[in-house]
Structure formats: C-alpha cells, structure tokens
Amino acid sequence: MTTKHLEKINSLLLPVCFAGVLLVMYMALGWAPLETTEGHVQRIFYVHVPVSWSAFVAFFVVFVSSILFLIKRSEKWDWLAVSAAELGLLMTTLSLISGIIWGRPTWGVWWVWDPRLTSTLLMWMIYVAYLMVRAYSSEAGRGSRMAAVIGIIGFADVPVVYYSVVWWQNIHPQPLIRPGNLELTGSMALVLLTSTIVFTIFLFYLISRRFLLEKATSELAVMKRTLREEEQDARIAKIKIDRAENK
C-alpha cells in the first residue's frame, strides 16, 4: 500500500468518523434506555468502554509491530509502532479521565485500586516510559530498537499485573464499592457495539494519519542528511580544485 492509497482511504474515513461520532452521541445520550440502578450517569459507559477498548487495540498494534520491527528491521513497522503507541497513550489517558469522572457519582469515590483501574494506570506508565525512551535515546536508530523491546515486555506485563491485583483484592478486606458488571439489555448492547465500532474506525484513521506524518518526518531527515553530505562533498571538491590551481 502506497502513501497515496493511504491518503485516499484517510480522506474517505474522516467523514465516516464524524458521522459516526454524531451517531454515537445521539445513541448514547438520547436513544439508549435509562439504566435503572445507576441512572443517567451510566451513559458515560458508552464512550468510556470504547475508549478503553481502543487503547488496548492500539497497544496490541504496538506489540505486533514491535515484534515485526525486530524481525524484519523495516522502518515502516517502527513508524506504525510509534504512531499506535502515541494514540494508545491518548486513549488510555481519556479512559482514565472518563473512568474517574464516572466513578465519583456511581461509587462515591474517584478512584479504587481495582484490577482494571490499576492495570490501566500501570499500562499508562509503561507507555509513557516507552515514548520517553524514544525521545531520550542517545542515537535515533537505537531508540526504536529499545522502544520495540519495551513494547513487547510492556504488553506482556499488562495481564500479569491484572491477575496479581485480582488476587491481591480477593485477600484484602474489600471496601463495599466496586465496579460491578452492568446488566446490558439488547438496545444497550447495540449502542455499545455501534460506539465501539466507531471508536475503532476513528482510532485507525488517527493511527494512519500519524503514520504518514512519521513517515514524512523520517524520510525528510534522510533527505536532509544526504543533501548536507552532498554539499560537503562539493565544498571539499572545490577546495581541492583551488589548491591544484594555486600550485
């Protein structure tokens, strides 16, 4: 797939995304039935869950493209990894924020050290470190290799953290508040499904856009380097000619 194809797909996807977002807003805030135990606040669920899902999808993309980068050493996997990591970090941030806002009216507290919340927070931290290693690496090429290793280890860590917190909770005396599982009726499930699809499409749109940006940036850097080298060669050649003439 060339850049042109990707750009074309992107320009088609953008209106789809916007229409989808409007549809989600309508379905989540208006069409979806009232949840009887939590009240209207439960409507946050229809955006909170898809955002968390997108975060997970994005980090899965990071995981796969990190492995492919280490095996194939083709730059495009690195571009994909960094794009997906950035989007995944954004989605995790939004998921945490919307979760905190949802937690306050439903459980009465902002935060609980529940397995899902804890592993999301740690996932957030791992990928902050991932982007930092990229930014602070001593050489550009090394940074992507180091980051790929973190992308793999970090992804493997998330389920381990989840289960360790599950066990930790079962033993700890529990506060009564706890994110329960909602009973989804048919129409609620439909809203959730629609919303998840829309958010996933939006995620892929943003990733591909970020991918093209990363591609252009690194290709430009290569061009700049060759230009500078050419310039230097020309200067050296000129000096040599001058010297020869002086003799």
Partner: peptide, 9 residues
Amino acid sequence: YIFAAFMAI
C-alpha cells in the same frame, strides 16, 4: 458528570 466525561473525551 456526563457532560464532563463526554467533554473530556
């Protein structure tokens, strides 16, 4: 809260 959550996202 609903407004804040949607707005944040």
